[in-house]
Amino acid sequence: MRRYVLSRLLAAVPLLLGVSFLAFVLVTLIPADPAEVALRVNEIIPSPELIELQRKELGLDQPFWERYVRWLGNSLRLDFGHSYTNHHRTVAGELGRCLPATLSLAGVSLLFVVGASIPLAVASAMTRDSLFDRLVRTLVFFGTAMPNYWVAFLAIWLFAVHFDLLPTGGDEGWRSYLLPAFTLSMTYISTYVRLIRNTMLAVMQEPFVLYARARGLPEAAVVRHVLKNSLQSSLTALGMSVPQLIAGSFVVENIFAWPGVGRLCVSAIFNRDYPVIQAYVLMMGVLFIVCNLLVDIISAMIDPRRQAEL
């Protein structure tokens, strides 16, 4: 087991390097001079001399590789430099300020995902081809097909404007969570309902389910065995929804004016605030790699068949 974890950790190192390189290089590929942008966002008319000065100040006159290595080294110490738009604020400080809002929204959404998809999938699989099952499958179809930015606006119109039940946006207590968490989790609920339902139906064909019934176990106990085996194979997908919920929140955050890192990143993109964009991309890349690693290790740990191999 320890060897497996170690080898997976080692394998993650080149991946992390690759992600950091991409985060750095993609932003520098944008056809605009960062030094000029840095001046413009502070409403300074750029002249060739000023640009030259700014370039020196930002270290942009140095060779590409040197800049990358220095940026990477600083990033490892969580020092992402200062924001272009606001020189008094560090990027790390900005991210740290916005991260809790994003994490709590993603957490509530994850609760929605797990709390809705497992019961729906079980009920749907148990009553296969019934009216309920068909209804769930239709909803799943719509849930997957409707883009969440569109649903978000519909939901705002219906619940916030028309019925005036919930706030349209911002973070004002638990009621503010409902609409953004619903829109964010809708796609994932649809995906997992279908995934878990289909896995359960496949598991129900296994001989051990027939034998559990032949032994005379009550149907509830049989379903428990089926669900355990289905969740085991759906766990990877469920685990990977954690980074997707965090990274995917930026559309929803902007619609609902949610003070999270997604909105921070979008305003950074509009302002060409390169250090913030780079830090955001790097953070999300690392998040995906780390979550993927954790999911793999956890699923290896809880599967007795794989424990023996490790």
Binding site: E206, P207, F208, L210, Y211, A212, A214, H225, K228, N229, Q232, D303, P304, R305
Partner: peptide, 12 residues
Amino acid sequence: MQHPLTSFDPLC
């Protein structure tokens, strides 16, 4: 059962 290897829940 016919197939003893697959007749038990592999996770229990």
